[in-house]
Amino acid sequence: MLDDRARMEAAKKEKVEQILAEFQLQEEDLKKVMRRMQKEMDRGLRLETHEEASVKMLPTYVRSTPEGSEVGDFLSLDLGGTNFRVMLVKVGEGEEGQWSVKTKHQMYSIPEDAMTGTAEMLFDYISECISDFLDKHQMKHKKLPLGFTFSFPVRHEDIDKGILLNWTKGFKASGAEGNNVVGLLRDAIKRRGDFEMDVVAMVNDTVATMISCYYEDHQCEVGMIVGTGCNACYMEEMQNVELVEGDEGRMCVNTEWGAFGDSGELDEFLLEYDRLVDESSANPGQQLYEKLIGGKYMGELVRLVLLRLVDENLLFHGEASEQLRTRGAFETRFVSQVESDTGDRKQIYNILSTLGLRPSTTDCDIVRRACESVSTRAAHMCSAGLAGVINRMRESRSEDVMRITVGVDGSVYKLHPSFKERFHASVRRLTPSCEITFIESEEGSGRGAALVSAVACKKACMLGQ
Score class of each variant (00 low, 15 high):
5 R>C: 15
5 R>L: 11
7 R>M: 15
7 R>K: 15
9 E>D: 13
9 E>Y: 08
10 A>K: 10
11 A>G: 10
11 A>Q: 13
13 K>G: 15
17 E>T: 11
20 L>C: 14
24 Q>K: 15
25 L>A: 07
28 E>H: 15
28 E>C: 04
30 L>W: 02
32 K>S: 08
34 M>T: 15
40 E>A: 08
42 D>P: 01
46 R>V: 04
47 L>R: 10
47 L>M: 14
48 E>G: 06
48 E>D: 12
49 T>W: 02
51 E>I: 04
56 K>D: 01
57 M>E: 00
57 M>W: 01
62 V>N: 02
65 T>W: 13
67 E>M: 05
68 G>E: 15
68 G>K: 09
70 E>C: 04
70 E>V: 06
73 D>P: 01
73 D>T: 06
75 L>Q: 01
78 D>T: 15
79 L>Y: 15
79 L>D: 01
87 M>C: 11
88 L>R: 03
90 K>W: 08
90 K>P: 03
95 E>D: 13
96 E>S: 14
97 G>R: 09
98 Q>Y: 10
98 Q>F: 05
99 W>F: 11
100 S>F: 06
101 V>M: 08
102 K>H: 03
102 K>E: 13
105 H>W: 10
106 Q>L: 11
106 Q>H: 05
107 M>V: 11
107 M>K: 15
109 S>N: 12
111 P>D: 09
112 E>P: 08
113 D>Q: 14
115 M>R: 14
116 T>Y: 11
120 E>Q: 01
121 M>P: 04
121 M>T: 14
123 F>K: 02
123 F>P: 01
125 Y>Q: 14
125 Y>F: 15
128 E>H: 02
129 C>S: 11
130 I>Y: 02
133 F>P: 01
134 L>G: 02
136 K>M: 06
137 H>T: 04
137 H>Q: 10
138 Q>K: 03
140 K>S: 05
140 K>F: 09
141 H>E: 04
143 K>I: 08
145 P>V: 08
147 G>S: 10
150 F>Q: 09
151 S>G: 15
152 F>L: 13
154 V>H: 09
157 E>R: 11
157 E>V: 12
158 D>I: 12
159 I>P: 10
162 G>I: 09
163 I>E: 15
163 I>G: 15
167 W>Q: 12
168 T>A: 12
170 G>Y: 13
171 F>M: 12
172 K>W: 11
173 A>G: 12
174 S>P: 09
175 G>K: 08
179 N>A: 13
179 N>I: 14
180 N>L: 11
180 N>M: 02
181 V>G: 08
183 G>D: 13
183 G>S: 11
183 G>R: 09
188 A>Y: 04
188 A>C: 07
190 K>A: 13
193 G>T: 09
194 D>N: 13
196 E>G: 07
198 D>F: 04
200 V>Q: 06
200 V>T: 13
202 M>N: 08
203 V>Y: 07
203 V>N: 08
203 V>H: 07
206 T>G: 05
211 I>V: 09
213 C>R: 07
215 Y>M: 11
216 E>A: 05
216 E>M: 09
219 Q>F: 13
219 Q>D: 12
220 C>H: 02
221 E>I: 05
222 V>Q: 02
226 V>M: 09
231 N>T: 12
234 Y>K: 00
235 M>H: 01
236 E>L: 04
237 E>F: 11
239 Q>A: 08
240 N>P: 02
240 N>E: 12
242 E>Y: 05
243 L>M: 13
243 L>A: 07
245 E>H: 15
245 E>L: 05
246 G>Q: 13
246 G>W: 04
247 D>I: 06
249 G>W: 02
252 C>V: 04
258 G>Y: 01
262 D>H: 14
262 D>C: 12
264 G>D: 09
264 G>N: 05
266 L>E: 08
267 D>H: 09
268 E>A: 11
268 E>F: 04
269 F>R: 01
270 L>Q: 08
270 L>W: 08
270 L>P: 01
273 Y>R: 00
275 R>S: 14
276 L>F: 12
286 Q>Y: 09
286 Q>K: 06
287 Q>P: 00
289 Y>K: 05
291 K>Q: 07
294 G>W: 03
296 K>R: 14
297 Y>G: 05
301 L>D: 01
302 V>A: 09
302 V>N: 01
304 L>Y: 11
306 L>E: 01
306 L>S: 06
306 L>H: 02
307 L>R: 11
310 V>Q: 11
311 D>C: 08
313 N>S: 12
314 L>D: 05
319 E>I: 14
319 E>C: 14
320 A>W: 08
323 Q>M: 10
326 T>Y: 03
327 R>M: 04
327 R>Y: 12
328 G>H: 14
328 G>L: 12
331 E>P: 08
331 E>W: 08
332 T>A: 14
333 R>W: 12
334 F>C: 09
334 F>L: 15
337 Q>I: 07
342 T>N: 03
343 G>T: 07
345 R>L: 12
348 I>G: 03
348 I>L: 09
349 Y>W: 09
353 S>V: 07
356 G>A: 05
357 L>N: 05
358 R>T: 10
361 T>R: 11
362 T>E: 12
363 D>H: 03
365 D>Y: 09
366 I>Q: 02
366 I>F: 08
368 R>C: 11
368 R>E: 02
371 C>A: 02
371 C>W: 01
374 V>Y: 01
375 S>Q: 08
376 T>G: 13
379 A>P: 00
380 H>L: 11
381 M>R: 01
382 C>Y: 04
383 S>V: 01
385 G>C: 09
386 L>D: 01
389 V>T: 05
390 I>Y: 00
391 N>R: 07
391 N>P: 00
392 R>V: 02
392 R>S: 02
392 R>Q: 13
399 E>S: 11
404 I>L: 12
404 I>H: 01
405 T>M: 04
407 G>M: 02
411 S>D: 14
414 K>I: 07
416 H>S: 08
417 P>L: 04
419 F>V: 01
419 F>D: 00
420 K>F: 01
421 E>Q: 09
424 H>Y: 10
425 A>C: 13
428 R>N: 10
430 L>H: 07
431 T>D: 00
432 P>Y: 07
433 S>A: 08
435 E>P: 05
436 I>V: 08
436 I>W: 00
442 E>N: 13
443 E>Y: 04
444 G>N: 08
444 G>C: 07
447 R>C: 11
449 A>Q: 06
449 A>T: 15
450 A>C: 09
452 V>Y: 15
453 S>L: 12
454 A>V: 08
454 A>L: 08
455 V>S: 13
459 K>H: 06
460 A>P: 04
463 L>W: 13
464 G>K: 04
